[in-house]
């Protein structure tokens, strides 16, 4: 039991160390994941910001959840 624990612990440490290249591998994966999440958050913020701006500009009442209200205004516009 104890030995098994030690072995798995050892394997885990070996995995973390990546044969001495830990800093390079983990930092590059970290940077990629961080930047991609950051860009995603920026996109979502941009979407919510511009959609609230649009709903403020548009005097007609509209729902927060996208398409249905979009469709309605579209028909009104075409009319």
């Amino acid at each position: 039991m104890q030995i098994e624990d030690k072995i798995s612990m050892h394997a885990f440490m070996e995995f973390i160390e990546m044969n001495g290249h830990a800093a390079f591998i983990w930092s590059s994966y970290g940077i990629v994941i961080f930047v991609l999440i950051w860009l995603f958050i920026v996109g979502v913020q941009f979407q919510t910001k511009s959609e609230t701006k649009l709903s403020q500009l548009n005097p007609r009442p509209r729902h927060r959840s996208g398409v249905r209200s979009e469709r309605k205004t579209g028909k009104q516009n075409e009319a």
């Binding site: 995603f40 941009f46 979407q47 910001k49 649009l54 548009n58």
Partner: peptide
């Protein structure tokens, strides 16, 4: 995924400009 989100934002922006 992100393109669709950005497009929603851009379409809303363009509509804001047209409305203004």
């Amino acid at each position: 995924w992100l393109f669709l989100i950005n497009m929603r934002g851009e379409i809303a922006e363009a509509r804001c400009r047209a409305l203004q």
